[in-house]
């Protein structure tokens, strides 16, 4: 009978002292250790429009960035506030229609419609979701899933906002470079902004709501208020994506309520690693191009797509970035038992 002679020991790298969040940086090596991964991500994202030659794939990058905004919102709500939201399609649709209507009926320029649709869409989504905020887990998810389906049918049945044709002739971006770099910068700011937010004092309240909402109430804070603020942030990101989508395609229609917008961010979070924020973002930049690339296989693409997802769930269920961060921040060694 063989006995285990050695076991694997995981140690935090010396730079991490006391607790996550408190670093003692004392040399260029350590500065590089902290800055390098962030720099690679930022530079990598900003190089994408330059490196990709074909116009078709450039458009895919923009779409992936919009999905990344949704995925960031999903990850933020699910892992830092404890609300599982399937409302991606809802946020995109509301933002998209708001921007298109502002542009077409009021004649406002892009510079105004996108910020206005972001705030207005977030406000509409938050108000509509307000009654569902006391719900948790799968119940909240169901309500957020119902809204896009309901709104799609309402627009269809009442024939408002252009009905099934949608709103045509929305203003486009001045050129492709503006279109691409603006959304990539927004994504980068959203990522680092959210990462900072969840470690600020108000972010700790959000995480408290996820861990133990009754203790938050006993601490004198209204959980509904903080859930509403969190939903406002996440739906704002989604509405921003929706507004952007309308201006990219110069069109807004009921297909913006398609369930793809709800499902792909979740799949990206599974692949990228929930709770890391950067993981879902990278997951989108991986999944969306793959889903485009698989178009060549026609309906078979769903099969390939499912296989990729299944493989990730079965073999790396924690997600790529959780794994990568562990490898980066810790080292392993074998020690005698």
């Amino acid at each position: 009978m063989s006995t285990i002679e050695r076991r694997r020991e995981r140690l935090d790298r010396g730079i991490k002292v006391r607790t996550e969040g408190i670093y003692a940086v004392s040399s260029w090596e350590e500065v590089t250790y902290l800055v390098l991964p962030r720099l690679i991500l930022i530079v990598g994202l900003l190089l994408l429009p330059v490196l990709i030659p074909s116009l078709y794939w450039k458009r895919v990058v923009s779409i992936a960035a919009i999905y990344a905004l949704l995925a960031l919102g999903f990850d933020f709500l699910a892992h830092f506030v404890g609300l599982v939201s399937l409302g991606g399609a809802f946020f995109i649709g509301v933002g998209g229609y708001t921007a298109a209507l502002l542009n077409k009926s009021l004649g406002l320029p892009i510079l105004l419609t996108i910020p206005m649709a972001t705030l207005g869409g977030a406000l509409i989504c938050t108000l509509l979701l307000l009654p569902a905020l006391p719900l948790r887990g799968v119940y909240f998810a169901i309500v957020t899933l119902m809204y896009p389906l309901a709104l799609m049918r309402i627009i269809e049945a009442l024939n408002i906002f252009g009905g099934t044709d949608g709103i045509l002739g929305v203003a486009g971006f001045p050129n492709r470079w503006v279109e691409q770099y603006l959304i990539l910068l927004i994504v980068i700011f959203a990522l680092f902004g959210l990462r900072r937010l969840v470690n600020e004092d108000i972010g700790l309240v959000f995480r408290g709501v996820k861990d133990n909402d009754q203790a938050v109430r006993a601490s004198g804070l209204s959980i509904t208020l903080y859930k509403a603020i969190a939903v406002f942030i996440a739906s704002g990101l989604g509405s921003l994506g929706g507004a952007y989508l309308s201006h990219i395609y110069m069109w807004s229609g009921i297909s913006q309520f398609a369930l793809d917008f709800s499902v792909i961010p979740i799949a990206a979070t599974v692949i990228g690693g929930g709770g890391t924020l950067v993981g879902p973002l990278l997951g989108c930049f991986f999944l969306v191009p793959i889903s485009e690339w698989l178009r060549e296989f026609g309906t078979l693409r769903i099969v390939f797509y499912s296989l990729i997802l299944m493989a990730f769930i079965m073999f790396r269920s924690e997600g790529v970035m959780v794994y990568a961060q562990r490898k980066y921040h810790q080292f392993q060694r074998w020690v005698k038992v």
């Binding site: 004092d201 700790l204 995480r207 408290g208 996820k210 133990n212």
Partner: peptide
């Protein structure tokens, strides 16, 4: 009912 995923001193930042 602590916030298990937070360090002890960050638990108090909520109240």
């Amino acid at each position: 009912r602590p916030y298990y995923s937070l360090p002890a001193y960050k638990n108090l930042i909520v109240p």
